Simulated scan of single mutants.
Amino acid sequence: MNGTGYILVVEDSRTQARQLEETLKPLGCSVSLAYNGKEALEVMRRERPTLVIADILMPELNGYQLCKIIKADDKLKDVPVVLITQLSDPPEIVRGMECGADDFIVKPYNEDFLLTRIQAILRIKVEEHEAAKEVVILVVEDSPTQAEHLKHILEQHEYQVSVAHDGREALVLLSQGRPRLVISDIVMPEMDGYEFAYEVKRDPELKKTPVILVTSLLDKKDIVRRASVVADGYFTKPFDDRYLVSKVESLLASSRREAEGDGDKINVSFAGEHYAIASGRRQILTFLLSIYENA
C-alpha cells in the first residue's frame, strides 16, 4: 500500500470489482479487492483501509452485515463505508443508513459522480484528522505512572495532552487555556475528581467541556454521585485502551453539536439518600451509556 492509504473494494463479481478498481485510479490511492464480506474483514484487520466501497448483494456476508461489523469494531468504525447496489427502494436506503454507512450509491452510476462522492468523503476524513491534531486533552492524575500511561495512549492518536496532578492545578491550567476534554482521576489530594468536576460544570465558561472520571471505586451510590457532579462519563480501572479512545472520540463529536440549555435539577432518591442531578440531556445520555458499557 502507498503512503496515501488504500481503498478496499468489496464486490463478489470479479468483473465489476476490476472495473471499479480502474475507475478509482484517478484518485491516486492504491486499491485492494475482496470478493466477499469475510475476506474483506480479513484484509481490513491486517491493514486498515482509508475507505471501503462494498456491494450490498453478496453471498456469506452482505454489505449491510459487513458495514455493521465495521462500525461496531473500535479499530475500524471510523473507516468510511460506501454501499453500492442496484436496489433503489427507500427501505433499502434506510437500511444502509441504519447500518452506519457513510454513503449510498445506486447502480448504474456515472463514474465522474462516483469519484466526486469518494473525493468528498476522503476530504472530510483528512480535515477531521488534521483537526484532531489540534485537540488538547487535559489529564488530571496524581500518579505519575498512570498519568504518563494515559498521555501515551492519547498521543498515539495524535491528541495534544496536558497533565495536572490534582484538581486545583487542573483549574489553573483551565483558566490559562480551555482544553476540548478532561479525563480526571477521582481519588486525589488537594481537590478530588468530584469537587473538580463540580467546579468545571458550574463555571459558565467551562461547563460545556466534557469531563470523564476515572476510578477504581465500584459502590453503586458512588456511581449516582458521579451524575450529581454532571460528569459526562466514567471508567473503572483497569480499562481497555480502545474503549477509552472510543469514548473520547464520541464525547468530542458530541461536544461539537449544538450546546444544550441549562435545565432544572432532577431530584432522585436512591438507596435511602437524595441526589440533585444537574445533568443536561446530552450528559445524562452519555453517562447512562458509560454505566451500561461498564456493567
Rank of each mutant, 00 (worst) to 15 (best):
G3V: 08
L8S: 02
V9E: 01
V9P: 04
S13T: 03
R14S: 07
R18A: 11
E21S: 11
K25R: 09
K25F: 02
G28Q: 01
C29L: 11
L33Q: 01
L33S: 06
L33V: 07
N36Y: 05
G37L: 01
E47C: 11
E47S: 13
L51R: 10
A54Y: 12
A54N: 10
D55C: 04
I56A: 06
L61P: 01
N62F: 01
L66G: 00
L66K: 10
C67F: 05
I69D: 06
K71C: 03
A72T: 13
P80D: 01
D89S: 15
P91L: 04
C99H: 00
C99T: 10
G100W: 02
D102E: 14
I105M: 09
I105C: 00
Y109A: 00
N110E: 08
E111C: 07
D112A: 14
F113P: 02
F113H: 14
T116Q: 14
I118K: 06
A120E: 08
A120F: 11
R123V: 12
K125D: 15
V126F: 09
E127V: 09
E128L: 13
E130Q: 12
D142V: 03
S143F: 03
P144M: 05
P144T: 06
Q146A: 09
L150T: 00
L150N: 01
E155R: 10
H157R: 08
H157K: 05
H157L: 00
E158A: 08
Q160T: 09
V161M: 01
V161L: 02
L171K: 05
S175L: 01
Q176I: 07
P179R: 04
S184G: 05
I186R: 00
E190D: 12
M191G: 13
D192C: 14
Y194C: 11
T209C: 04
P210F: 04
I212L: 09
L213A: 10
L218Q: 12
K221F: 05
D222V: 10
R225I: 00
V229C: 03
V229D: 00
G233L: 06
Y234P: 07
T236P: 04
D240Y: 08
D241Q: 04
L244A: 07
S250A: 11
A253V: 07
A253Y: 10
A253R: 06
E258V: 07
E260T: 01
G263V: 14
K265S: 12
K265G: 15
I266F: 06
I266P: 08
I266C: 14
F270T: 08
F270C: 15
G280A: 03
G280R: 15
R281L: 13
F287H: 08
L289D: 09
